[in-house]
Nucleic acid binder design. Structure first.
Lengths: 106, 106
DNA sequence: GCAACCTGTAACGGTATAGGTTACGCTTCA
DNA sequence: TGAAGCGTAACCTATACCGTTACAGGTTGC
């Protein structure tokens, strides 16, 4: 196996999940040679909205996950789960600052 | 096996997932005999916010998922995934109304 | 050079949601 | 009767999604 790692692989090693927008660009737009403008038009959304997702300034909403699943074929759940994992990773970083009392093991 | 079904079981048969708030109440508050007021105080949130979640008028945010995982012990991911599945179920109902062009199988 | 195209993004408005405090009316129970 | 618990309306702030329009910068090809 290779010792060189992709940017995504390096980030996962440091427990820093990629923003879903990066995955979308690398896995869908680039392989198909799609421009942002063309992809936005196909998805039925504005170029600005897609640009915001691709550059990490917006997340993937439930409706957007359904749109992606129609256009690119992967399940809406997989798109939305990516976003959930990313959001959760952000929230976990603040875990120690939360004032919460343990109640019981679930 | 019994032919009588719980409300949750009936909803799953019709592919109508329960709101995470219902699960929270049935699996955490009721078994421990916790009042809404006491649970909210332990979670470090207002009684109004917890009430909104329990009665389906608000979702479980990433931060709230972390709070629940501290107080009740289940993983934050499991709490957040419940919310994601619920949100996605709502979004899927509108799938046919979205104007999206198929681009390629992912 | 210049036109055509793609891109990121600022500015602005509309809508939705999470969260807080305060306060009201209702029910249950000692 | 009074205390406790509950749902929730009213009002506030902050954040997020999404749209349109417009601008600046980069690339490509004639």
């Amino acid at each position: 196996m290779s010792t060189t790692k992709t940017t995504t692989e390096k980030r996962m090693l440091m427990h820093n999940p990629p923003h879903p927008g990066e995955v979308l660009r690398g896995l869908c737009l680039e392989p198909l040679g799609l421009t942002v403008t063309a992809a936005a038009e196909a998805l039925g959304i504005s170029r600005k909205t897609l640009s915001a997702i691709l550059n990490g300034r917006a997340g993937i909403s439930p409706e957007m996950a359904v749109r992606l699943s129609i256009a690119f074929g992967a399940s809406a759940e997989s798109w939305l789960n990516q976003q959930t994992q990313y959001d959760l990773w952000l929230a976990e970083r603040n875990r120690k600052n939360l004032k919460v009392r343990k109640l019981s093991a679930a």
